[in-house]
Design a protein around this nucleic acid. Structure first.
Lengths: 227, 227, 227, 227
DNA sequence: TATGAATGAGCTTTCATTCAT
DNA sequence: GATGAATGAAAGCTCATTCAT
């Protein structure tokens, strides 16, 4: 009975190896320029074997992407695994997202390059489902935090948790893309500190949604629980 | 000497025709799926002639993009060609950008697809220069408005005009991309009004940068000068 | 000693199952588009097992074909298992072949697709032998009938039984292929009744080979024995 | 003005060269095993150029086939370009078809291999039209001869010209395929003269359709006009 | 200047067959 | 005997770019 299990394990391991290889190539070249030949070679497998484990190049891309989302999810969970107040958690999430952006820049880029609709339309439904599942889990987490902040009287009660989340998220993305693509231009030529701006903009948005009471004790709220 | 001028004029006209054709194709298909054959056919020119006027497919793409920036620049200029106060002008610029996003969606998309690093790296230096020139003109305009708002005591004097501009711009972009790509998901499934959110977020950011005095007369500042 | 027999029986049964599956797939898709994977799946066996029982895809194709020939042979035997006269038997065979064509169209088509020389050259010698064996049995049967007709003074004695058989058979095939492939064209566009033509042509050929005596009593000869 | 013509001529010549090369490869290997690479190499052209002149492998196959049909058409026209009687013309056509079969065996085979429906469905409409045009011309010729024979009182007036033509043609095809595939078996092993049988069967069919008057003077009718 | 024929590298996917377990 | 993972060759088609005319 151990045989079946071992086979399962090996199969899983093989899938891992393939993703590892695909990751190396996609990170380096992006989607279109990457070739299945390169990935196969990098995985030290035949091209045919790749297709034994993943239905298409697009699926493989998504599989790598999912790994990135998984990482992000874990980072987010850890960011709120404290007994701090929701506002603090919200800032923690912002920091976690920024850390993800900085530490896992390759995944971040893959996610954005995903915009190419051609990839989107070729992905198998299984992969799609996994994507959506993970997406949902991440959003649930974020929205949950904001809701708690509203319920706790820290954010104004006319704040829609999802709306607030989307607003902060898209604001972050706008600046992150800037940092990713043009940091040299803005920082070097114009002396901007884009990272600080990102934090500032988010802080402004959050403050604008806070109740008067919360604003009054803002420093307390956003100071790490244990210095 | 008239001959030389005529030749110049004709050359310019031919370049226009080519961009017109390229635009039609790129708008319809995006970068990669568009082919030089299609563009040549649409321009009623031979493929070889295309290369006589533009060095590469990438250059052609950028040429179309530049036209979009030109349009944006004109819209921006018009948006501040009133004798309103700078805060009002700032909101006008925001609206102009949103109008550009809505009315010139094709250019907006082309601009973002530009992120693909492959395109970036193949563009000729002449094109690059033109891009930067136009970029500068647009940013000068935006930054100028914000500077005047600071100088006029409407925005706090610790506000860096460029920083503020970039912040508002990237915040807008983040939400615009969302609208462009996933509006159906966020609006349909979750009932969000992304357009309203965009305006709200920008307003919050601007308010957060306003002086107390300006905030007090906010409604006056942002009400159109003459109804 | 029972063990060996059981094993034999099981082996035979397994071969049957495989042919059943191969048949389903080949009938549906033809030779080239059918894949060993599909056949294996349809047989609920592993691909490797297929190769344990049949040397190649081609062999499997021939194995299915043989089953078709077997059916044809049985139909032919039944067609002459009456105590009618040889001319009647000859027409019975013609009808049997047509019935085979109509009822077992899939086998008929497989047989003709066999013309592809690629298949031919990959078949194992064992399969080839079986093919020839069955072929011989069928031809013996046909030739036997014609010989009896000659010996019985119904067909002219300058008629070579094998030659006559081949003539009738190839004439039938020519029209059957037409029916199978292009019936809609000839029937629909030109109003031909290809089935009637097939019968007519064969009848003409047989009549042309009959003795004067037999021709005189043609109607008696070809009227079913018992109405 | 000569330039345009020369270009036209060269383009035509290039198409010819490509067909020549395709012919060599298709004759040797058949459709599926032939590769565009081989054809390109044989044509001393790049693969891309092939696709400049022909839309697909299938189209190229049909183009070669059309050449075969053209040859057949010319042979048929020549076969009846005498002032002989229609019955004689009919036999001439039979001989011409057999000559085509013998001398242009490769084209004959290509035509039959065409049965593969996969080829059929991929052919461009222009090619299809050309095929049908040529087909029609050939059939018009055959049917015209038979009609004249009926009108001249040589064939019975219940003979449908098209039906008679199809009957003779499919009968011929049945035997030709046999000759092409299995001559060695039937001739070598069983001593049949398939070629003679083909002539005999057709003769029997024609005779069976002749009027009594014509049958009486059969020898006169089918003896070449000028020995 | 304008043409358009020619190039040829490049890419994903399929599948019969093998072989270690 | 049975498995099924792994192979790797094969193949059609596209397209940006060049260059002789």
């Amino acid at each position: 009975m151990g045989i079946k299990e071992r086979k399962e394990r090996e199969k899983g391991a093989r899938r891992e190896e393939i993703i590892n290889a695909a990751e190396r190539i996609f990170f380096e070249k992006g989607f279109a320029p990457a070739t299945m030949d390169e990935i196969a070679e990098s995985a030290e497998l035949s091209k045919g074997t790749l297709y034994l484990y993943y239905k298409s190049k697009e699926d493989l891309y998504i599989a790598v992407l999912l790994r990135g989302s998984e990482i992000m999810y874990e980072m987010f969970k850890k960011a709120i695994a404290t007994d701090e107040n929701p506002i603090r958690h919200l800032f923690n999430l912002g920091e976690a997202y920024f850390a993800y952006f900085q530490e896992q820049r390759n995944y971040f880029r893959m996610y954005y390059f995903l915009e190419n609709p051609r990839i989107h339309s070729q992905v198998s439904s299984e992969m799609m489902e996994q994507c959506e599942l993970l997406d949902t889990r991440i959003w649930d987490l974020v929205v949950g935090i904001i809701r708690r902040a509203v319920e706790g009287g820290l954010l104004r009660d006319d704040v829609d948790p999802l709306e607030a989340g989307v607003m902060l998220w898209s604001n972050s993305n706008g600046l992150m893309r800037l940092i990713d693509r043009d940091e040299w231009a803005w920082t070097g030529k114009h002396g901007l500190n884009l990272e600080a701006m990102l934090r500032k903009a988010n802080k402004l948005l959050v403050q604008a949604m806070m109740t008067e009471k919360a604003k009054a004790s803002f420093d307390d709220l956003v100071t790490p629980a244990r210095p």
